[in-house]
Design a protein around this nucleic acid. Structure first.
Length: 289
DNA sequence: GTTTAACCCTGCACGC
DNA sequence: TGCGTGCAGGGTTAAA
């Protein structure tokens, strides 16, 4: 039975690829105008703002100074002490465009630049969102405040990771996906990390040997770094693309995710899946214990 | 403290 | 064949 084609979504590697693209493409540009599209769903994207105009006025005339990432959130810092915060949800994406190019379906926001060209926010499922706040108020945004340490940060050491793991008594899969424990991993990469570490989804975090902790720590950094190098995971035509519309290539590197019934790349045992809290998790029954 | 369920929405699969 | 219905899917949060 072929694996069902899934829509793609956005985890740390994809957000980081977009961040790097935006740094090259939009930093230094000044916003001329912002068009929040007339369809009702566009308001869902800017749900923290009462009106389209309010959101647009906060951005018009501002210059984009730098682009940071916190977990799966993108932070576009503007020249007057304000920040455009973006979360892609499940199906959000940024695309560079020009006035002559027609807007694709589910385009909710178009940011037009003075130097020409625009940046479009597209999101079929509208689970994503964007809002503008001041740098001073960033700390008051609870979702950002709660985000745990990033696996790519140098300050993320395995000793610290080990301490956090033993403090918690939770199943590894749930823990890896918990943004308050470690930031940026979703369903795809948590499965891949657990496979790379040789650990099962239901292992309790406080039962790992120090060797297993180190394996998990190393796997987490390696999988995320590799996925960025391959510019993210694109599972179907409709799925994630970078700012230029180009799909990622990490899907060909996936070891377990979406490979139900296919031979494990390491031991040839068929990949199994299990439903956890309504989400499908993939693993190798032989390689992971 | 952890686990579960529900919410948001679209698109697809399925059945009549 | 065409339409209507049901539900999968991820991140977050509130409830259990």
């Amino acid at each position: 039975m072929p694996a069902k084609v899934q829509e793609g979504w956005v985890e740390l590697p994809e957000v980081e690829v977009v961040r790097r693209d935006l740094e090259k493409e939009v930093v230094g540009r000044r916003i001329r105008d912002v068009d929040v599209r007339p369809q009702r769903n566009a308001m869902r994207i800017i749900r923290r703002h009462a009106r389209r105009k309010e959101f647009a006025d906060l951005l018009a005339g501002r210059k984009i100074m730098k682009v940071d990432r916190k977990g799966k959130y993108l932070l576009l810092f503007l020249d007057q002490g304000e920040v455009l915060v973006v979360h892609f949800g499940m199906s959000g994406q940024f695309l560079r465009g020009t006035k002559r190019q027609a807007l694709s379906p589910h385009t909710h926001v178009v940011i037009e630049f003075q130097q020409g060209g625009d940046l479009r926010y597209i999101d079929p499922r509208t689970f994503g969102e964007m809002f503008v706040t001041s740098v001073d108020d960033l700390g008051k945004v609870s979702e950002l405040d709660h985000i745990a340490i990033d696996p790519l940060e140098d300050t993320f050491t395995w000793q610290e990771f080990s301490g956090e793991l033993s403090k918690r008594g939770a199943k590894l899969k749930a823990l890896l996906m918990d943004q308050k424990f470690v930031s940026g991993l979703g369903n795809i990469y948590s499965d891949e990390v657990l496979f790379a570490a040789g650990l099962r989804y239901d292992r309790m975090s406080d039962t790992l040997s120090s060797q297993e902790v180190r394996r998990l720590y190393r796997a987490m950094r390696e999988v995320v770094q590799d996925a960025i190098r391959f510019r993210g995971t694109t599972l179907s035509d409709e799925a994630y693309v970078d700012v230029f519309g180009k799909p990622g290539e990490f899907q060909s590197e996936l070891k377990v995710y979406g490979r139900l019934g296919m031979a494990c790349r390491r031991c040839r045992t068929p990949i199994a899946s299990v439903k956890l809290n309504g989400r499908t998790s993939y693993y190798c029954p032989q390689c992971q214990s």
